[in-house]
């Protein structure tokens, strides 16, 4: 997989994700995480190699994957209801049906009663939940989450992580989660993909030896702490050559 920009950011990177898996991708900045996401969502095309979604090769992947960006990117002029209904609106779902579907999900997302508010009236955690709801409503069975919690404070972040796992276990969607937080990656995922830096490109897959459901005490188990230290060491070594 390569990108059109020079030099090739991603080269010889190949991986496979099973349906319903929670995968984290971790790597130092400049390791091509965002390029990877742009490729998967279809915003960019690979210069060589191919991308299969649900086992199919499709040149136009736009609209096929639910994408949740790093910043919430809610439109300030739209109410929460209209922001969340955006992917449905773009797919041509009738307004009433679209709004009905959003309203049904709002309570589950802890957003009951805010449908007519504007994004500026909501806290950071709530805005991220709206953004996640919007990604879910794209109707895709693959969700790409790009450092969604990096801007939140520690407590909100922990709550959001637990909440995300709960939702994922319920819906059984495939989640690809970009983060630079090792602990977050270990706590959430089935496996962690570590992107190595240029020039030697490769993606290392590390399975997380934890069962489900997860809770916060699990990350204090000795083997997880060891894994965490090992990962941090690996990433640090790559940042400072």
């Amino acid at each position: 997989m390569e990108t059109s920009t020079e030099p090739n950011v991603l080269d010889n990177v190949s991986f496979h994700v099973n349906a319903g898996e929670f995968i984290s991708i971790i790597g130092p900045s400049g390791s091509g995480k965002s390029t990877l996401f742009k490729l998967i969502t279809g915003l960019e095309q690979p210069t060589s190699g191919e991308i299969l979604l649900n086992g199919q090769h499709d040149h136009n992947r736009l609209g096929r994957v639910g994408y949740m960006p790093q910043q919430d990117l809610l439109m300030p002029w739209r109410t929460i209801l209209k922001n969340a209904a955006l992917p449905l609106e773009l797919k041509g779902v009738a307004k009433n049906n679209a709004h009905q579907r959003v309203l049904e999900l709002l309570e589950e997302f802890g957003l009951k009663g805010v449908e007519h508010k504007y994004p500026r009236d909501l806290s950071g955690g709530m805005k991220q939940r709206v953004s996640f709801l919007r990604a879910v409503l794209s109707g895709s069975n693959i969700l790409l989450l790009d450092e969604p919690f990096s801007a939140l404070d520690a407590i909100t972040r922990m709550n959001m992580q637990a909440w995300l796992l709960e939702k994922w276990e319920k819906w059984k969607t495939t989640i690809l989660f970009i983060t630079h937080d090792v602990e977050e990656a270990l706590f959430l995922s089935d496996s962690v993909f570590v992107l190595s830096e240029t020039p030697v490109q490769h993606l290392e897959k590390i399975n997380v030896p934890l069962g489900r459901p997860r809770d916060f005490h699990m990350i204090h188990q000795p083997e997880i702490i060891k894994l965490k230290e090992q990962l941090i060491e690996q990433l640090r070594w790559r940042v400072t050559p």
Binding site: P69, M75, P87
Partner: peptide, 21 residues
């Protein structure tokens, strides 16, 4: 914002959608 434009594109938005929305 360019980021919102890209987000709309990942949702399958057309040029027209991006203009009006």
């Amino acid at each position: 914002r360019q980021e919102i434009k890209e987000l709309l594109l990942t949702m399958g938005a057309s040029k027209r959608d991006i203009f009006f929305k």
